[in-house]
Amino acid sequence: MSSTPPEQKDAFTLYDLKVSAICPEGKQQICGAKPGDHFILQGELLYLPPGQGFSIYSLAAVLPLLAAKQRENHRNDWIESDALVACPDPNCKSVLKIERVGRRTFSHAETTHVGLDGNHEDIPGS
Rank of each mutant, 00 (worst) to 15 (best):
K97N: 06
G36H: 03
H113G: 07
A83K: 12
Q28Y: 13
L48T: 06
A67H: 12
R104N: 08
L59T: 07
G51L: 09
L59S: 02
D16T: 15
I79V: 13
I40M: 14
Q8L: 07
N73M: 14
D37C: 06
L84F: 15
Q42N: 09
G51A: 04
S58T: 10
R75M: 12
D16G: 05
C92E: 02
S126P: 00
W78R: 12
C31V: 02
Y47R: 09
W78E: 13
H120A: 14
P88L: 05
P35N: 08
S81E: 11
C92F: 00
V95Y: 04
Y57K: 15
G43R: 06
Q70N: 06
P5N: 14
S58Y: 01
H38Q: 08
L59V: 05
H108G: 01
E110M: 11
K18A: 08
D82P: 00
P35I: 06
A21H: 01
Y15I: 02
G125Y: 09
G118M: 03
I98M: 08
Y57D: 12
H74L: 13
G115H: 13
G36I: 04
V101S: 01
A21T: 05
Q52N: 07
S126N: 14
S81A: 11
P24N: 05
A86D: 15
L63E: 12
R71Q: 15
H120V: 07
K27T: 11
N119K: 15
G115V: 00
S107H: 05
G125P: 01
R100V: 04
L65R: 10
L65T: 06
L17W: 00
P90D: 04
E72D: 15
P6K: 09
D122Q: 14
G26R: 02
D89V: 01
D117Q: 04
E25N: 10
K34T: 09
R100L: 02
I22D: 03
E44N: 09
G125N: 06
K93G: 01
N76L: 11
G115E: 14
S58V: 07
K9L: 13
T4G: 03
V62K: 03
E99N: 07
S55C: 14
P64T: 03
A11K: 04
E72H: 10
I30M: 12
K9S: 15
E99R: 08
T112D: 01
A33N: 08
P5W: 01
H120N: 12
G115S: 12
K9W: 13
R100I: 06
N91S: 10
F39I: 00
L59Y: 15
E80Q: 13
E25P: 01
C23E: 01
T112P: 02
L116I: 10
N91F: 04
E44G: 07
H108Q: 08
Q28S: 10
I98S: 03
E44F: 08
Q70T: 05
T4S: 06
P88V: 02
A109V: 10
L41C: 05
R103S: 11
Q70D: 08
T105H: 04
N119R: 15
Y57I: 00
S3K: 11
Y57P: 00
P50T: 11
H74F: 10
P50I: 11
P124D: 07
K18T: 08
H108C: 03
G125D: 06
T111M: 15
P49D: 05
H38T: 02
D117G: 00
R104H: 08
R104Y: 01
G102Y: 09
